[in-house]
Design a binder for these strands. Sequence first.
DNA 1: GAAACTTCTTAAATAATTAAAGAAGTTAAT
DNA 2: ATTAACTTCTTTAATTATTTAAGAAGTTTC
Lengths: 405, 405
Amino acid sequence: MTDKKTFSRNKILKELYFEENLSCADLSIKIDKSFPVTAKLIENLIAVNLVIETGFAVSTGGRRPLTYALKQNVMYLVSVAMDQFVTRIVVMDMQNNFVSPIEKIVLPLPDNAGALEILKDKIIQVIYSSGIPKEKFVGIGIGMPGFVDVEKGINYSFLPLGNNKSITKYIADKIGLPVFIDNDSSLTALAELRFGAAKNEKDVMVVNIGWGVGLGLILNGVLFRGHEGFAGEFSHIPFFLNGKLCSCGKTGCLETETSLLLIVEKAKEGIAEGRLSKLSSLPFDNLEVASDGIMKAVLEGDQFAIEIFSKAGYNIGKGVAVLIHLLNPKLIILSGRGSSAGQIWQAPIQQALNEHCIPRLYQNTKIEISTLGIHAELIGAAALVMENYERIPVNKSHPALHEMS
Amino acid sequence: MTDKKTFSRNKILKELYFEENLSCADLSIKIDKSFPVTAKLIENLIAVNLVIETGFAVSTGGRRPLTYALKQNVMYLVSVAMDQFVTRIVVMDMQNNFVSPIEKIVLPLPDNAGALEILKDKIIQVIYSSGIPKEKFVGIGIGMPGFVDVEKGINYSFLPLGNNKSITKYIADKIGLPVFIDNDSSLTALAELRFGAAKNEKDVMVVNIGWGVGLGLILNGVLFRGHEGFAGEFSHIPFFLNGKLCSCGKTGCLETETSLLLIVEKAKEGIAEGRLSKLSSLPFDNLEVASDGIMKAVLEGDQFAIEIFSKAGYNIGKGVAVLIHLLNPKLIILSGRGSSAGQIWQAPIQQALNEHCIPRLYQNTKIEISTLGIHAELIGAAALVMENYERIPVNKSHPALHEMS
DNA sequence: GAAACTTCTTAAATAATTAAAGAAGTTAAT
DNA sequence: ATTAACTTCTTTAATTATTTAAGAAGTTTC
């Protein structure tokens, strides 16, 4: 099989990953090949047991087309979602199911020289524990905070490796699988673009509410990363004259007035000052438990918790107003950890838009809460691998692939 | 000649417009056709007198390629650049020369129901005065302020036409040439992308300093317009807590602290308060003359003028810091009317970046002053027509085109 | 319930790309 | 300096893919 055919063949597998059932006509358009060529390739993929027929699609006014899907249990991925404190690792299949327990480890990234090795070992362990033979793994996708150079596989903020060596190459060499990394907010956006509320949309801003406030930009239907790959630094736009020192060293950054970290902080202060609230029993030293607890209180109607979220939401809204002016998106998605608080975000953000946006600009812009929520980054990490699937050299040891003619 | 061939043929003409001399190999890549097909098309274009050989390009280590260019004096364009007060119209050739005097008319756009008809009549007059037969015109490109829907040919802010009818269709029907419109800042950016400092760059912000502060976004190598085409509303991002009322009805917009309009205002105030300066003799009731005068004073070292520009520059810089955080561009270009003030902008903007940007983000971002300056919008209007050239139906009456086989 | 209209599938004709060979020019080594 | 090795452009021939047209299957409308 020639290189070009392999390329088109992999494109078919990729498209079937992103869109579970597709007809030959659909695939023909998506891989930009003619119908006869596409039909031949599908025939071939069925012969080597990677693709199966899944019946007929509903008619759109004519003969019903045969649909195809990826065969189950023949290809797998490793997804890794990191934040500054906690890292999650899981094995996923091609139907976006978690097929292993989500392994959660405490792995602080700041000033941690050994983090990369721990990560690598943990990934190996997860692969091993899954009991799935390594040949069936397509690759490893990793989302991480910091300034990430996707092409070079380097993180300029965390996981140092000396001499600007490539993180992806380091792990790939040790494990023997292709590795892809990206910024956590970019992957959250990728997940929304491929499997969430941004599906088939062209211009969408995905606000990743976590310990900071990240931003993934979908522009012209693709993930936008910028000149060096650092686009989306929403957290640190100079926005307030509050004089508050930010972790980045400047003052007045957006994240000094909004973020889950600040919300936990405010809750802690309020309780210390004697505010009556369900939050009084929270363990504020454990960020994850505390922020989950505050969000739970919001959903249960706790007044103090709602008050804190409303203020944070209003400030996010002011930032969103800037995004709308500059980029005129169709949709804003609130995703990431903080999206668990649900619809509470809507009102204060809308309020901020009413005050700070030209009506013509925001009246056709919708704001939605992500349904992927906390899992967005993991799903995005898997999608990252598949985004690059046609470029991955064929895994000669794969039980199905080596039969290809 | 089939439709597909016409499409490829027009793509060749388009590429030769944007890049004066190209080899067959270059063109083959640019129009995404094989060498044999491209060679045939070029042969054909030479036969009908639209393209000529222009000798050999320098060798890149092998045989020197033959180069081709558009023949002179066979195709022309009408370019129109409008701002809120003044409209300029000119005839251009395919080598980006102005082949008629630049017709400048005072045409205030706000609350002016008759503006469109005056515009149309003036365009007709310019075409007629040029003495060039109408069949040789490819089309008309128009840049205008306001919320412009490029696809529908509608301006939601100015040039009202009742029932949301299409401006492009109106003019095209009256004149009999294809018409394209776009936002003035977008066209300024297009000019920079195709013929200016942004040539061959992928991620560039073009700040259009005029009566407001516009923004044209070049992302992934193409002009970004956003969901409804309104992207780049830099002027009105909510940015200051100054309480100053903006023309848009909100307070604290970026343009309340920077723009040529504000600069003229400040100069007028200062002089009234008795500041010593060359500016004291300026006619402040004529905006164009006044702002040109202040910029001239800047270049001559007038202290008061420089002081005003420095403050405005610093505030633009704060806005640029937001752009850099969000979009990580490689280059920022200061273009439009205000770029005449030259290098004076650099220092205060750089100062603002030093204060408000994460170093890693701005250290690889260059800031340049446009060399196209005040002509950028006119050039961009011409480029707009040629951007769409392959979609324009063939002009059967063109003296060369009707000979095509 | 049949006719008109869609859409999918298959097969033949057409048009493209790819590959290979030749021509022209540059660089590096003897 | 001259030749050999290497690049790159151009042309031709072989291969490959796309387009077109016809047929099959299904849906909607009158």
